[in-house]
Write a protein that binds this DNA or RNA. Structure first.
Length: 646
RNA sequence: GCCGGCGUAGCUCAGUGGCAGAGCAGCUGAUUCGUAAUCAGCAGGUCGCGGGUUCAAAUCCCAUCGCCGGCUCCA
């Protein structure tokens, strides 16, 4: 290859020769590849601006707003545009940081007065102006010292602070219009690439996420490469809002909260309570099937005991205390203590292990008022909690069994989930060997099953590593449900032992684990997952009997009682309304089956079932209907739940 | 806990200093109807709670409880 030519390999494998020094932009245009609006590129694997020139042979991939990376770059640029708009309207504002995030971007500002909704509109208008003037993003590389001097002169102290922590001698700045930001890049070629954007909300946020620091004002927004994508996203938000469990909880009459009762306390109405009963009955059965013992511990335990377990030192802020006859008691925030005492109630042999103690344990935690969120974050909740005490060599098998359990249950409910392994944090106790063995047990359990997971280094509990299983709510927020945690501390603190084959005392290992997690939270995610239209096996009301007119009421009552006797959760709508009205009610209540009774059905001794999806079934006897839905329940739960579970 | 917003009938909401409103739901009556809303009438309020300003407060101010969006936290 002559010295003034270079060879470029494109993403799709095509190769082409260009003059040395050609820009990526020109190379992509000349490449004859798909004609798309490129906004940045990957050059030999690194993300770069389109203006970057090619001085040697290279592989090149153009990025458009259709790709995840491209969209991320677009949104990052949108945050710079927003910052420029804010600086233009509020010259006294100081800029902090402004990254792209999962569904958009934000930028943090230090301002005297928080932004208002009207401010957001003005900022949006200014952004639209900046976008239509198609300002180019210019990259500049300067020395760190010069950058510090530059931002100091502009009194952008947050940037100066950030620069103080960058070790590199050279840093890059990006400039568009009057706005200059410290930024690694890359960015879109000019502001015109942002075809659709919207500022969504404003909220306070601590500088660097530390509550000891000053609270800044964060503006959230989102941006896309075309208007349709933005419309689609806004539509998604609308749909998500409709399936918000707090809204459905009220509409379907499942539960409520009351400011007279207090924050974070769930009041279960009949339909919500039956849902919970179904979940709990399902769980008890599944735990017994897997060799767990059902136990129950008290709610109040002496504070002395919480001191011994370490909760008083490490968890006091989240606990409620009370006094009974001059003796201090703590309300349990976790269920482990009684389980420890059950273990200790007699001498244990290796033959007793593993010992699996399961409790649907109701706990109370003092969560800060600002974090409460419907059923997903409450102050009183019930965990499907178990503690497994086993020999160290049994740990691997126990963890695998728990993972199987979690997978089977998530499969029945139809949840997708993400798994995370959290390793040793800085502040922790236990030997290096213990941690290594436990962490490896968790990793190998997941790897043996071929389950993908992410590592969260240093995110473990102080007493041991853990696997967390996260489910997503309607708005794509992730909530921890199942968790599997190894613990070396409690067996130590409570001096738990077992007699080994060798006749000597040994220390058992403990695993804390929940499958659904908190029943409340799980229920909340479940409601959103099904948008309130529960499968028949979970539906609080499985069928409603509706008549064409009052004339069929006597037969309808008989039928209703018969179907109820067969174990179906059924209701009778005996209101004097037209059939269409009653069908609509049932539909809105998302009841799986409507059992229609008119003169024809009375004559034949039949019912005419209609599914909530609108399908009309053959007329049938109450017995065949019960058999039909029993089969449906069994099919949905892999044979575990039929009729009359509770 | 922190920043901002909000709290009016069971629900969704209108009402910004001068008589507390609408739709749906509820109740009563009429209608007796075949698969997503029959008609009419009636009733329903401590305007979250407590103070204050004012001749007068749902409306303005303070405090408090609760809710919403974030931040922080989440053993």
């Amino acid at each position: 290859m002559s010295s003034d030519k270079i060879q470029v390999t494109f993403e799709d494998g095509r190769r082409q020769v260009f003059p040395r020094g050609i820009s990526l932009d020109e190379a992509l245009k000349a490449s004859g590849g798909p004609d798309r609006a490129w906004i940045a590129a990957r050059l030999d694997g690194n993300l770069v601006d389109l203006k970057r020139t090619l001085d040697a042979d290279a592989t090149v991939e153009g990025l458009s707003a259709d790709s995840d990376k491209g969209l991320e770059i677009l949104r990052h640029s949108a945050s710079h545009i927003m910052a420029e708009a804010v600086k233009a309207l509020f010259p006294e504002a100081r800029v902090a940081i402004g990254p792209a995030i999962e569904h958009g971007f934000y930028y943090d500002f230090e301002v005297e007065k928080p932004f208002t909704e009207e401010d957001l509109e003005r900022i949006e208008a200014k952004m639209a102006e900046i976008i239509s003037s198609r300002l180019t993003f210019q990259r500049k590389e300067i020395s760190r010292e010069d950058a510090i001097a530059f931002f100091q002169k502009r009194r952008e102290m947050y940037k100066v602070e950030l620069l103080g922590e960058i070790p590199d001698a050279m840093v890059s700045l990006y400039e568009q219009g009057d706005f200059v930001d410290l930024c690694r890049g890359p960015h879109i070629p000019d502001t015109g690439s942002v075809k659709a954007f919207k500022l969504t909300s404003v909220a306070g946020a601590y500088w660097r996420g530390d509550e000891r620091n000053r609270m800044l004002q964060r503006i959230y927004g989102t941006a896309f490469g075309d208007k349709e994508a933005l419309e689609k996203y806004l539509h998604f938000l609308e749909e998500a809002h409709k399936r918000d469990h707090r809204r459905l909880g009220r509409e379907l009459d499942l539960f409520s909260f009351s400011d007279e009762v207090g924050a974070g306390m769930v009041i279960y109405h009949p339909k919500g309570a039956i849902l919970r009963h179904i979940l709990e009955a399902f769980e008890k059965r599944e735990h017994l099937r897997r060799g767990y013992h059902l136990v129950m511990g008290p709610t109040l335990l002496k504070t002395e005991l919480w001191k011994r377990s370490g909760h008083f030192d490490h968890y006091r802020e989240n606990m409620y205390f009370t006094e009974i006859e001059e003796q201090s008691y703590g309300i349990k925030p976790m269920n482990c203590l009684a389980h420890m005492l059950i273990y200790k109630s007699k001498i244990r042999s290796y033959r007793d292990l593993p010992l699996r103690l399961f409790e649907l344990g109701t706990v109370h935690r003092h969560e800060k008022s600002g974090v409460l969120h419907g059923l997903l974050r409450v102050r009183q909740f019930t965990q499907d909690d178990a503690h497994i005490l086993c020999m160290p060599e049994q740990l691997h098998k126990e963890i695998q069994d728990i993972i199987d359990f979690v997978i089977e249950v998530m499969g029945i409910f139809g949840f997708a989930y993400d798994m995370e392994i959290s390793t040793r944090p800085e502040k922790s106790i236990g030997t290096e060997l213990d941690w290594e063995r436990a962490t490896n047990a968790l990793i190998s359990a997941l790897e043996d099953k071929g389950i993908p997971y992410t590592m969260c280094e240093g995110e473990g509990a102080f007493y041991g590593p853990k696997i967390d299983v996260k489910l997503r709510d309607a708005l794509d927020r992730r909530w921890q449900c199942a968790t599997i945690q190894c613990d070396f501390t409690l067996p130590e603190r409570f001096d738990l032992t077992y007699i080994g084959v060798d006749g000597q005392r040994h220390r058992p290992v403990m695993v804390h684990r929940v499958i659904l997690g908190a029943i409340e939270r799980f229920l909340g995610v479940l409601i959103e997952h099904f948008a309130g239209a529960f499968p028949t096996w979970l539906a609080p009301v499985q069928a409603v009997v509706v008549t064409v007119s009052d004339a069929q009421l006597p037969f309808a009552r008989q039928t209703f009682e018969k179907v109820r006797d067969l174990g179906v959760r059924v209701e009778l709508d005996d209101r004097n309304e037209k059939l269409g009205y009653k069908i609509r009610e049932a539909q809105v209540q998302k009841i799986p089956y409507m059992l229609v009774i008119g003169d024809r059905e009375v004559a034949g001794g039949h019912i005419s079932p209609r599914r909530r999806d609108g399908t009309q079934l053959e007329t049938m006897t109450p017995e065949s209907f019960a058999a039909l839905i029993e089969k449906e329940c069994l099919d949905a739960t892999k044979g575990k739940v039929g009729l009359g579970i509770i």
